[in-house]
Design a protein around this nucleic acid. Structure first.
Lengths: 219, 219
DNA sequence: GTAATAAGTTAGAGTATTCTAACAAATTTG
DNA sequence: CAAATTTGTTAGAATACTCTAACTTATTAC
């Protein structure tokens, strides 16, 4: 059974994987806020446990077992976030830190019960998919708001960043998942977008913000 | 901040303390399922952190800080047990293992919210008192059923042991907190008690069982 | 295509937690 | 009270995870 530390490495590897499923050691070290030698030695031990394929100077790749393990931890994290929001009344900006700890609990019944109480949700409060209990993830094909064109109407469906600061920013603008947005114009200068929605006839979103908002195009 | 390991030592010291607040090293080691030298070295480090008073060959005593720290961990444990039973539908025999892990989570808001949702309970599902958020414990003066006399009517109010096996035994006899019991007789031979309650006109409880059932005498 | 830079590795060490073996102090028992 | 037993201690070592310093390999940039 993986230690909490190992679980954090698996999760980071999963989240940092590029389209080829590869992660560089320095990205991993940076993501986990540890030194390069620490990550290096830990990766060797993860390899011994069969969770990572590793060859000197090559990018890291999770094995199938490593991917499943990681997905199941992420499942616990996202179920917990959903539970905290839907059943305990927390704001979406408050739940990450708590879930970061709860995800390491080994108690299948506990998470099963959350799942039942939530009606087997498929996405978490930030729109990210919740892996099923076999570690399989349903992929959605959302596009970043930053790629949308003036005139389009879209629905906010997920985020690619869920930091407290970002979520608080969205709260301050009353932007929630499900909100319908009309793309009014784009500033060629800084690529910011002007949008309207609900009681906000005109709101400017910087490129940094709009590329982190995933949307479904309605028309 | 105490590590999970340290927290477990503090909790064990708290729970094992006799009326003088003392614990022997061997009891501690036994309670935590570690070797005597392990407990010994850990206790030295707890002393350095100011949580335990320790002198060679003398019994261990928690400092005021250690007591408070321990009580706050026990608070988290018992709140969690109550939450699992009342809000998530678990049986009282299922919650200890989960709470054993949840108690180490550092997230005041999480436990505050549980407390609120539960209406600020003062006892856990096994009748044990829940320390307040300052680590103060309300003491109750219940007596063990084993000390009761034939003819008395009592109400089951708490348990001094909450092992899964014991709780499952109680479930099998439909004995729950709040149940009113009539003490019918005591066998001089093995000190077992014969009692009646609800749909059980006659049930024999061994001394081992009856001394673990705390009751309030009604008449 | 070499020089500079970035990325990765090795060596050596520190802290936390655990163990076994060997010994010492305290307590119990006849 | 001396012997036997229990309890507690020290020494030395192992594992997990972390670090800094020094070095090597790979990549990038002229």
């Amino acid at each position: 059974m993986a230690s909490s530390t190992e679980e954090n490495y698996l999760k980071a590897l999963f989240n940092l994987s590029n389209s080829l499923g590869e992660v560089n050691l320095s990205e991993l070290a940076h993501g986990l806020q540890v030194s390069l030698p620490t990550a290096n030695s830990m990766v060797k031990s993860l390899q011994k446990s069969g969770w990572v394929n590793y060859e000197k100077y090559k990018p890291l790749i999770l094995t199938a077992a490593g991917q499943k393990e990681a997905a199941l931890i992420i499942r616990k994290h996202r179920l917990t976030e959903m539970f905290l929001v839907k059943k305990m009344g927390f704001g979406w900006e408050e739940v990450h830190e708590i879930a970061e700890q709860v995800e390491h609990i080994h108690a299948p019944k506990f998470f099963q019960r959350m799942d039942e109480m939530l009606g087997f949700p498929t996405i978490d409060p930030h729109g990210s998919p919740i892996p099923d209990n076999q570690g399989r993830i349903q992929e959605f094909s959302y596009v970043p708001l930053s790629s949308c064109k003036p005139g389009q109407t879209v629905q906010l469906t997920a985020l690619t960043n869920s930091s407290t600061e970002f979520l608080e920013f969205l709260n301050s603008r009353k932007l929630a998942l499900g909100t319908q947005l009309n793309v009014l114009s784009r500033e060629a200068y800084d690529l910011s977008l002007v949008v309207s929605y609900e009681n906000h006839p005109q709101e400017t979103l910087s490129e940094k913000v709009s590329e982190r908002l995933l949307v479904r195009v309605l028309e």
